Amino acid sequence: DIIVVALYDYEAIHHEDLSFQKGDQMVVLEESGEWWKARSLATRKEGYIPSNYVARVD
């Protein structure tokens, strides 16, 4: 699995987006352009995240 960590807070604009806080970790389900589908490890919610707001966890 690809795990990413949020570098900034993000508040969902569209209903299919996933809100998150800086430091939250998410599993990337699908990488497509600038918006990736991800699942929050904390809340288990799924949605689209801006890929430039996150960094991969090695």
Rank of each mutant, 00 (worst) to 15 (best):
residue 26 M to G: 00
residue 57 V to Q: 10
residue 22 K to A: 08
residue 52 N to W: 09
residue 39 R to H: 09
residue 27 V to A: 12
residue 35 W to S: 13
residue 42 A to K: 14
residue 11 E to P: 08
residue 17 D to L: 10
residue 11 E to V: 10
residue 3 I to D: 00
residue 28 V to E: 00
residue 46 E to N: 07
residue 7 L to H: 15
residue 33 G to E: 10
residue 45 K to W: 05
residue 40 S to E: 09
residue 27 V to H: 03
residue 24 D to T: 03
residue 38 A to P: 00
residue 12 A to N: 06
residue 21 Q to A: 12
residue 54 V to Q: 01
residue 38 A to F: 01
residue 7 L to Q: 05
residue 54 V to D: 01
residue 41 L to K: 14
residue 55 A to E: 14
residue 46 E to S: 06
residue 15 H to K: 14
residue 46 E to W: 06
residue 51 S to D: 03
residue 41 L to I: 14
residue 37 K to H: 15
residue 21 Q to T: 13
residue 4 V to F: 12
residue 26 M to N: 02
residue 40 S to P: 05
residue 25 Q to D: 04
residue 12 A to W: 00
residue 27 V to G: 04
residue 15 H to A: 10
residue 20 F to D: 02
residue 28 V to A: 07
residue 56 R to I: 10
residue 58 D to V: 02
residue 8 Y to Q: 05
residue 11 E to N: 13
residue 16 E to K: 09
residue 38 A to C: 15
residue 5 V to H: 05
residue 24 D to H: 05
residue 30 E to V: 06
residue 46 E to C: 11
residue 17 D to Q: 15
residue 48 Y to R: 15
residue 14 H to G: 14
residue 52 N to M: 14
residue 16 E to M: 09
residue 53 Y to P: 00
residue 16 E to N: 07
residue 58 D to Y: 12
residue 10 Y to D: 03
residue 39 R to F: 05
residue 27 V to Y: 04
residue 52 N to C: 10
residue 51 S to L: 05
residue 50 P to M: 09
residue 4 V to C: 13
residue 15 H to G: 11
residue 3 I to R: 08
residue 4 V to Y: 12
residue 12 A to H: 02
residue 33 G to W: 02
residue 4 V to G: 02
residue 47 G to A: 02
residue 10 Y to Q: 02
residue 30 E to Y: 15
residue 27 V to F: 04
residue 43 T to P: 02
residue 11 E to G: 08
residue 26 M to P: 00
residue 20 F to V: 09
residue 35 W to A: 12
residue 54 V to I: 06
residue 29 L to N: 06
residue 54 V to E: 00
residue 39 R to S: 08
residue 8 Y to G: 05
residue 37 K to D: 01
residue 19 S to K: 10
residue 44 R to K: 15
residue 3 I to H: 02
residue 49 I to Q: 00
residue 3 I to P: 03
residue 35 W to V: 14
residue 48 Y to E: 04
residue 28 V to C: 11
residue 8 Y to M: 09
residue 58 D to R: 07
residue 46 E to P: 02
residue 37 K to G: 03
residue 33 G to M: 03
residue 39 R to I: 08
residue 22 K to H: 03
residue 45 K to L: 13
residue 47 G to Q: 00
residue 21 Q to H: 15
residue 51 S to G: 10
residue 30 E to G: 12
residue 44 R to Q: 14
residue 27 V to E: 13
residue 49 I to H: 00
residue 54 V to P: 00
residue 23 G to H: 03
residue 32 S to E: 14
residue 14 H to R: 14
residue 38 A to K: 02
residue 57 V to I: 13
residue 56 R to F: 08
residue 23 G to S: 05
residue 22 K to R: 11
residue 6 A to S: 05
residue 55 A to Y: 14
residue 37 K to M: 14
residue 58 D to L: 01
residue 45 K to Y: 08
residue 17 D to C: 04
residue 25 Q to M: 07
residue 8 Y to F: 14
residue 26 M to I: 05
residue 6 A to I: 00
residue 49 I to V: 12
residue 47 G to T: 01
residue 4 V to P: 00
residue 24 D to R: 00
residue 53 Y to E: 00
residue 39 R to Q: 13
residue 11 E to S: 15
residue 16 E to H: 12
residue 14 H to M: 08
residue 51 S to R: 13
residue 25 Q to E: 15
residue 25 Q to G: 04
residue 22 K to F: 01
residue 4 V to T: 02
residue 49 I to D: 00
residue 53 Y to I: 07
residue 55 A to C: 05
residue 10 Y to W: 07
residue 37 K to R: 10
residue 42 A to H: 10
residue 45 K to T: 14
residue 9 D to A: 09
residue 39 R to T: 08
residue 52 N to T: 12
residue 58 D to I: 04
residue 58 D to H: 07
residue 56 R to N: 14
residue 4 V to K: 01
residue 48 Y to D: 04
residue 32 S to C: 07
residue 19 S to A: 05
residue 53 Y to G: 08
residue 44 R to F: 13
residue 31 E to M: 06
residue 42 A to S: 06
residue 25 Q to Y: 10
residue 25 Q to K: 10
residue 17 D to P: 01
residue 45 K to A: 13
residue 31 E to Q: 05
residue 39 R to M: 09
residue 38 A to M: 02
residue 52 N to E: 12
residue 32 S to M: 15
residue 46 E to Y: 02
residue 41 L to V: 12
residue 31 E to A: 03
residue 14 H to S: 09
residue 33 G to H: 03
residue 23 G to I: 00
residue 5 V to I: 11
residue 50 P to G: 03
residue 11 E to Q: 14
residue 7 L to Y: 05
residue 10 Y to M: 04
residue 10 Y to L: 06
residue 56 R to V: 10
residue 44 R to G: 14
residue 37 K to C: 15
residue 51 S to P: 13
residue 9 D to G: 07
